[in-house]
């Protein structure tokens, strides 16, 4: 009896101070994130201003129907998932490559210069990016048609109706905007690696590539896993700006640019139906949630230490 009480007390002694340290953050998340989740109810309500959020009538799953009863449901879901997969795989590979190369250059001036430039695109809004892409691709005065193809005597391409090119254009645009920025995380990861590992490897005659393969990449694994699980949670979301503004809302491109977010936007543009847009967000979140739990469970099975929770 006595020992049990003591044990309990000692866990509390261990737990309470740690909990206190975390408390400010917890309180903030409660206020900023958890309280507003009450708004998720709106997905199941027919919103009426007179009645407000809490007294509006329930309408079951009515608000969700528009996402599934359309012929486009398959196309938009497929596009959203495939692009996200491409972004996760290529984005991670590119960011790691940049991080490794930048770290290789160490403290040199050019490393700083390169890094400054590479994170710049991330600071431009999608609207601006869409203008840049338009400047490069537009049929009449765009850079490619005007400055490259014309001098070569090749007839200009109407890029905004050329469906086949857009998966590549969108992927490149996304990499351009975000790869440099995401590489920062991996640079931090690399910097955390014990340098003596490399030194002894070098003494053993390991080449640079071998060092990267056997030391850097394995040490980055936890970061990669974490970042991937987090991206998996956003699997059903898409960057509205990338898929709506960058293709200039071009109808001909819908088969390869329509995602869940753009469909919802185009569908609800003219009547601001709060219930239906909440429903779309709820659907995207819940699928993301399921996918994350699944991904986490798999990681847990393979490699317990790297699971998120």
């Amino acid at each position: 009896m006595q020992t049990k009480v003591k044990e309990k007390k000692s866990t509390r002694q261990k737990t309470a101070p740690l909990f206190l340290i975390a408390l400010p953050g917890i309180v903030y998340l409660l206020i900023n994130n958890y309280l507003p989740m009450a708004g998720l109810f709106l997905a199941f309500k027919r919103y009426n201003f007179m009645k407000g959020i809490f007294s509006s009538d329930w309408c079951g799953f009515d608000n969700f129907k528009f996402l599934f009863t359309t012929k486009d449901a398959w196309i938009m879901t497929r596009n959203t998932i495939l692009y996200n997969l491409a972004f996760i795989i290529l984005g991670t590979a590119m960011s790691i490559l940049i991080a490794i190369l930048l770290c290789e250059l160490g403290q040199k001036l050019r490393a700083k210069l390169f890094q400054s430039v590479l994170i710049l695109p991330n600071m431009l809004s999608w609207v601006i990016v869409s203008f840049v892409v338009f400047a490069i691709l537009n049929a009449d005065s765009g850079f490619i048609n005007n400055a490259i193809l014309k001098p070569l005597g090749i007839e200009g391409v109407s890029w905004y109706t050329f469906t086949g090119a857009w998966p590549i254009i969108l992927i490149i645009t996304n990499l351009w905007k975000s790869a440099g920025y995401s590489s920062i995380v991996y640079m931090a990861g690399i910097s955390g690696i014990d340098k003596s590992l490399y030194e002894s490897a070098a003494l053993d005659g390991a080449t640079k590539l071998q060092q990267i393969k056997n030391i850097t990449l394995p040490m980055l694994k936890p970061t990669v896993i974490t970042m991937t699980i987090m991206s998996v949670g956003r699997m059903f979301y898409s960057d509205f700006g990338l898929f709506y503004q960058v293709p200039q809302n071009s109808g001909a491109l819908f088969p390869v640019t329509q995602t869940i977010d753009t469909y919802v936007y185009r569908g609800l543009m003219e009547n601001n139906n709060i219930g239906m847009s909440s429903a779309a967000g709820f659907y995207q979140s819940i699928i993301g949630f399921i996918l994350v739990l699944a991904a986490n469970a798999i990681v847990r099975k393979l490699d317990r230490d790297n699971a998120m929770f």
């Binding site: 261990k14 507003p36 708004g39 709106l42």
Partner: peptide, 25 residues
């Protein structure tokens, strides 16, 4: 050694997935 570390991770991660939109905020 922190008993609630997993629960806390979940608590934090959950905020990434769900948000109630601008109106309640």
């Amino acid at each position: 050694s922190f008993k609630y570390s997993n629960a806390l991770s979940f608590f934090v991660f959950f905020t990434m997935l769900f948000n109630g939109g601008i109106v309640p905020s």
